[in-house]
Amino acid sequence: MTVRTVLQSADITRALTRISHEILESNRGGSDLVLLGIPTRGVILAQRLGRILESIDPAVGESLASVGSLDVTMYRDDLGAQPTRAPSPTQLPASGIDGKTVVLVDDVLYSGRTIRAALDALGDHGRPRAVRLAVLVDRGHRELPIRADFVGKNLPTSAEERINVRLREIDGIEEVSIES
């Protein structure tokens, strides 16, 4: 087993900053924007993106301030194939998601099934104007017609490899590595 670090702390911060700029650009500002992280690490990333957005344009702060989480456990299609997962809470902004631009945030985009589940879950909570997807790493191997709008880094991998995303808030260290 070999482990190779592909992103270090500074790389991650740089990637998130770039994504923040791209989000603001594509949304033509920060209005009616909702960032929803997919547990567990997507939630951390969404919170960081929210802070960066605010620091770029403090005016965004008032209209944005909408960072939440969206649990997709109950919408997965692989319940019988995986060990039982404990669901995490879903927290949506008090003003809801109707008519908003929702940016789903996750750490790794792989088969696309998690995002499929997230889209289904979102539909049961309301009707956003548009849904975007931001991921820290896109490792390929899609099984569904899903792509990310904002990508921190494309990492071509083989299916046997594992991508480990470690974030300070949860793991104590900050890096992205490939295990093969």
């Binding site: 109950m74 919408y75 319940l79 669901p87 539909g123």
Partner: peptide, 23 residues
Amino acid sequence: GILDVAEDMADVATREVKKLPTL
């Protein structure tokens, strides 16, 4: 753990769509 999962299930009852596709 069971009680915690039930907390999430309780949230469903407060939503517009009171149904999950899980099963």
